[in-house]
Amino acid sequence: MFDDIRPYRNDEVTAVIQKLINEPALQASIAGIKLPLTYKIFPSLAKLIVKVYFKSRLRKFKCIDDIQKEVAKYLYHLIDTSCSHFSYNGISKIDPNKPSLFISNHRDIVMDVALVNLALYQSGITTVEAAVGDNLLNQPWVSDLMRLNKSFIVKRSEKTKRAMLTASKQLSSYIHYTLSENQQNIWIAQREGRAKDGIDKTNSALISMLLLNKGKETSISEYLTQLNIIPVAISYEFDPCDQDKAKELAAKEATGEYQKSENEDFDSITRGLVGKKGHVHIEFCDPILGDFEDSKAIAQAIDEKIIANYKLYDSNQKAYELLKNTEIEPSDNPLYNRLQQLTNEQKKWLLTMYANPVLAKETLNT
């Protein structure tokens, strides 16, 4: 019933890894990153080197837990090199004996869920199965990699309304089944696509999808208890992709559209992983429980918790202040260097994405 979207199981790991080892496109992708000069001059040799390396490294992986432990090592390294400080709070609000549906704001394609997972892993809590849109899985080997690391597929590219509804019902059923029957934590972003403008707002359609599996005899309050939604506020001092986002937002404002380059998502993933982020904080909020009128009311409750628990940094406050000024002057403000090489419109958007969390908190408190 869920074979086309679920993560791989332990008994599938060996076969999938062998398939990945022999995947030319994956070999080429890694060789282009790790051995760029060799790959340019001797592409076959570079791919062979990658294949031999894969064999020596990946053959030790026999189950999903082996892969998760290796990912954790890589994450520790990433945090050491890209974050000046990583912190989390609110773990006590998570009942380790009751599976949770974590819904977070969405700023980075990979790091959001990776950091949530790391916080859980360090706290002895089961890591999540993570939702990933099929729009990011343009190659079968990318899908294989994600599904090996406890990701399930969200079908976003269905062509008809009927197909989209069928996919939504399947996803809703899968999430409830995974929580209730498999006793497995789940993570999903509060909206499709990153909040490039810094406005963290839950798409009520996401909540409507979650409620599709609710029986008519079950109240919203009862179903929310079963889902055990825990909002998560993820706060980055600096966004490694902020200039790219500013350019996209400025282009959309000027022309009404923006055309992604062929490898733009992959480049964003790479930059988000290795780029400097400064301080990063994760706050786990109280569960969303009680009686709500509809999906919009639930979405609003999630938004309020995420906004209230979002950690503001000096970068947010400085951007808020700078937006009030017509001229951006050099100062000790680390945002200044990020504004270089940008047009005035692009500068406005970069500052706006950092300032919007400040505005959101002000609005929430009024």
Rank of each mutant, 00 (worst) to 15 (best):
Asn135Lys: 02
Asn365Thr: 13
Gln259Asn: 14
Ile199Glu: 12
Lys169Glu: 11
Lys34Gly: 02
Glu304Leu: 05
His281Asp: 13
Ser168His: 01
Pro330Ala: 09
Pro24Asn: 02
Trp141Thr: 02
Pro287Glu: 06
Glu283Phe: 11
Glu304Tyr: 07
Glu329Thr: 15
Gln300Thr: 12
Asp242Ser: 02
Val13Leu: 08
Val52Ser: 11
His85Gly: 15
Ala250Val: 05
Ala163Met: 10
Leu323Val: 07
Glu217Asn: 15
Ser331Thr: 06
Leu312Ala: 10
Leu137Trp: 01
Ser204Arg: 06
Ile298Met: 00
Glu262Thr: 13
Val71Asn: 10
Leu351Glu: 10
Gln170Thr: 11
Ile109Gln: 03
Glu345Lys: 15
Ser123Ala: 12
Asn135Glu: 10
Leu137Ile: 03
Val16Met: 05
Lys51Ile: 01
Met209Glu: 00
Val110Pro: 09
Val132Glu: 06
Ile282His: 09
Val358Tyr: 08
Arg59Trp: 15
Lys40Ile: 03
Lys318Gln: 15
Lys324Gln: 15
Gly193Phe: 06
Phe238Asn: 03
Ala301Phe: 03
Asp303Tyr: 04
Ala25Leu: 11
Ile30Asp: 04
Lys93Met: 09
Pro24Ser: 01
Tyr313Ile: 05
His281Arg: 13
Lys305Gln: 13
Thr202Phe: 05
His176Asp: 11
Ala189His: 02
Thr255Gly: 04
Ser44Pro: 05
Glu12His: 05
Val52Gln: 14
Lys19Pro: 01
Arg271Ala: 12
Glu327Pro: 10
Ile207Asn: 00
Ser172Tyr: 00
Ala195Lys: 01
Tyr236Asn: 08
Asp286Ser: 11
Tyr336Ile: 13
Cys285Asn: 09
Lys252Arg: 14
Arg147His: 08
Ile49Lys: 10
Ala250Gly: 04
Leu78Val: 13
Lys196Trp: 07
Glu23Lys: 07
Lys361Trp: 03
Ile230Arg: 05
Glu304Cys: 07
Met146Val: 12
Tyr74Trp: 15
Ser261Lys: 14
Lys69Arg: 15
Leu118Asp: 15
Phe152Ala: 08
Tyr88Gly: 05
Ser92Asp: 14
His85Gln: 14
Ile67Cys: 06
Leu249Cys: 05
Ser168Trp: 00
Ser208Ile: 00
Glu158Ile: 10
Ser143Leu: 11
Ile125Pro: 04
Leu224Lys: 00
Cys241Met: 03
Lys55Met: 11
Tyr313Asn: 09
Pro240Lys: 00
Thr343Lys: 05
Val52Arg: 13
Tyr310Lys: 12
Asn356Glu: 09
Pro96Cys: 07
Glu12Thr: 08
Val50Glu: 07
Thr14Lys: 14
Ser315Trp: 07
Leu148Ala: 00
Leu75Ser: 09
Ser82Glu: 03
Glu293Arg: 09
Gln259Thr: 15
Ile186Ala: 05
Ile199Thr: 13
Glu181Phe: 07
Lys19Ile: 04
Phe61Pro: 10
Leu165Trp: 10
Lys60Gln: 12
Asp267Lys: 09
Glu222Gln: 13
Thr326Ser: 14
Asp286Leu: 10
Ser100Cys: 14
Tyr258Ile: 01
Ala31Cys: 00
Tyr76Gln: 11
Glu248Gly: 00
Gly133Glu: 08
Ala233Gln: 08
Ile230Gly: 03
Pro7Glu: 10
Leu101Ile: 01
Leu148Gln: 01
His279Gln: 15
Leu179Trp: 01
Tyr223Pro: 00
Ala233Thr: 09
Ile41Val: 13
Leu165Tyr: 14
Asn309Asp: 10
Asp314Thr: 15
Pro96Glu: 06
Ala360His: 12
Asn337Ser: 11
Tyr88Gln: 08
